[in-house]
């Protein structure tokens, strides 16, 4: 017995996390997945319907069109994050890493929106960009561009992009902190010798730093994917439960939330007949979409490492 563990010391390292995580994270998920096989509104008796909810989700044209719309927006957020946000994060992190003047200020200022609660952020942006009382429009008027004034946050055709900008503004610091951490792990000697060889600041980033933080980039791409699929609060606050005008800011987890807990509004409304059943079904579909990509990404990463 002792020999068994001696041979496998990792078990000791894994065990505490494994036990807690399994009880409080994994078990509830599987208990919840069970609900997707029932027709249930959360209050009355559950009725077993097997795969009925899944068939319904993929054959009902209304549900399907809502899902593809939300999925499209979630993908938009993911793509924008990978193509724009991650490069910006790397550059920001690099600027702090090479000890630019003002690095402390940068880091704190970039990260600080994290700590402000979302409704307040949205409210402050309203104070700045509203059509009637917004500061930005006031400035436009003062510099003679009064004809351009708009309610910037609400321009319907920009819906999901405004969501992305606000998410990015509030959340860009997280990835940046990871990049700084990763850059700090790079051996100093390498950078130094490159510098002595005359490599400029961007060449060092490209040839030395980037290859070293490749895994972090890959990880954050996966995180961005998970994030895009599970982001909720900005869309909810900007567009309400229905996901905005013509659902222009709808995203996957808002779609899930609308189905599962939809009619919770001050005017009352109805308990939807199969809200929990269908809501959970959507969550499971979302889960599978994330799960498959995660497996794919992780095996890709290990294959690379083994090479």
């Amino acid at each position: 017995m002792i020999a068994f563990f001696k041979k496998r010391p990792y078990i000791f390292f894994l065990l505490p996390g494994f036990i807690l995580y399994t009880i409080f994270v994994i078990y509830p998920i599987f208990a919840a997945i069970n609900i997707s096989f029932f027709e249930w509104n959360g209050i009355s008796e559950k009725v077993f319907v097997g795969l009925g909810n899944y068939i319904e989700l993929f054959t009902n044209p209304e549900l399907m069109s809502q899902m593809t719309n939300a999925l499209g927006h979630s993908f938009t957020l993911f793509v924008l994050t990978v193509l724009l946000q991650i490069p910006i994060q790397i550059i920001m992190a690099y600027m702090i890493y090479i000890k630019s003047k003002g690095k402390n200020f940068f880091q704190v200022a970039i990260f600080s929106p994290q700590f402000i609660s979302t409704p307040i952020i949205v409210f402050i942006f309203t104070l700045l960009f509203d059509g009637n009382i917004g500061l930005f429009n006031r400035i436009l008027e003062l510099i003679g561009l009064g004809h351009l004034t708009r309610s910037w946050l609400g321009i319907p055709e920009l819906g999901i992009y405004i969501v992305w900008i606000m998410i990015t503004w509030a959340g860009i610091g997280v990835g940046m902190v990871y990049f700084i951490g990763a850059m700090k792990m790079i051996s100093f000697d390498e950078i130094e010798s490159a510098y002595l060889e005359g490599a400029g600041v961007w060449r060092r980033l490209y040839y030395i730093v980037l290859p070293q933080i490749k895994t972090t980039i890959l990880n954050l791409v996966l995180a961005a994917y998970i994030f895009g699929m599970t982001i909720f609060d900005f869309s909810y606050i900007l567009g309400g439960i229905s996901g905005g005008i013509n659902r222009n800011v709808d995203v996957m987890s808002l779609f899930f939330y609308r189905m599962a807990f939809g009619d919770q509004n001050p005017l009352g409304g109805r308990v939807n007949e199969n809200s929990m059943g269908m809501g959970t079904t959507i969550a499971v579909v979302l889960f599978l979409m994330l799960f498959i990509v995660a497996i794919f990404q992780i095996s890709l990463m290990y294959r690379k490492e083994e090479e």
């Binding site: 409210f123 509203d130 309610s151 319907p156 900007l238």
Partner: peptide, 22 residues
């Protein structure tokens, strides 16, 4: 409702009224 009603949010509308803009 003003020129940009589709883009105005609830809080903005309330503030417009309390600021005497509507």
């Amino acid at each position: 409702f003003g020129s940009d009603v589709a883009a105005t949010d609830g809080a903005g509308a309330q503030l417009a009224f309390t600021n005497g803009k509507t």
